[in-house]
């Protein structure tokens, strides 16, 4: 059974980190996995930073020709149909906001044929600058859907404060995620937490993830 995950959300909510986690998880489960870095918006901190990890984990990786170069040209040069056909699990890491989601709309004619296998996940972080304004989060979700021409199927609550995240920060973000879910009618799939924060309060509540996207200094 083929699975396609389209990862969307606000700039800096953690789309790339979640994409890398999903890819590693499914590849380790034995699925033939591919990640496509489809971010045409932001030239810093992107999945293309992890190509060596992907090689090590046997994950196929596709990115724009100019990712991690000094050219920030919004060009996509790979065949999404071929990537989908050749893999069992496909993760599409999309750029931020509705501007980034335009690329999903561009591939709509291909993606629509795989709708029953597709999950479009909206990643949220209540500690980003839009704050815990659930209505704002839903408004952005709808804008992304308009650009993407596809509706979301799930929400991942990825609320964090970077290196300074404490378990309480994650616990106190649950209500926000539930509010976004209630207003949008889209279910919360899970809440994430850095594996290093593992503790009793989070066990059972959070899905532990690894933090790949970070600065090279503390």
């Amino acid at each position: 059974m083929k699975k396609i995950y389209i990862i969307t959300g606000h700039y800096g909510c953690g789309k790339t980190n979640l994409s890398v986690n999903l890819a590693v998880r499914y590849s380790e489960q034995g699925l033939k996995t591919a990640v496509a870095d489809m971010d045409i918006v932001n030239p810093y901190f992107r999945t293309a930073d992890f190509s060596s990890l992907f090689r090590e984990k046997n994950i196929s990786f596709y990115s724009t020709l100019y990712a991690n170069t000094n050219l920030d040209i919004p060009a996509l040069n790979f065949d999404i149909e071929a990537i989908i056909m050749n893999h069992e699990c496909i993760i599409l890491d999309i750029g931020g906001d509705d501007a980034g989601a335009v690329v999903v709309g561009r591939y709509f004619d291909t993606l629509k044929r795989y709708m029953s296998s597709t999950e479009m996940i909206y990643v949220i972080n209540r500690y980003r600058e839009t704050g815990d304004d659930a209505e704002e989060a839903v408004r952005l979700m709808r804008e992304i859907e308009q650009s993407a021409r596809i509706s979301h199927t799930g929400i991942v609550n990825n609320s964090n404060l970077g290196r300074l995240t404490a378990p309480e920060d994650i616990i106190s973000s649950v209500g926000f995620a539930e509010k976004v879910s209630e207003l949008s009618g889209i279910p919360v799939l899970y809440h994430t937490a850095d594996r290093n924060l593992k503790c009793r309060q989070l066990d059972g509540l959070a899905e532990y993830i690894d933090i790949y996207v970070k600065t090279s200094f503390a």
């Binding site: 700039y11 800096g12 972080n125 209540r126 500690y127 980003r128 600058e129 704050g131 815990d132 304004d133 964090n160 404060l161 970077g162 300074l164």
Partner: peptide
């Protein structure tokens, strides 16, 4: 009510 600590890019924090 906005959370007291906010996770922001340097550019955004500066603008705010």
């Amino acid at each position: 009510m906005t959370a007291e600590r906010v996770l922001m890019k340097g550019n955004e924090a500066l603008a705010e």
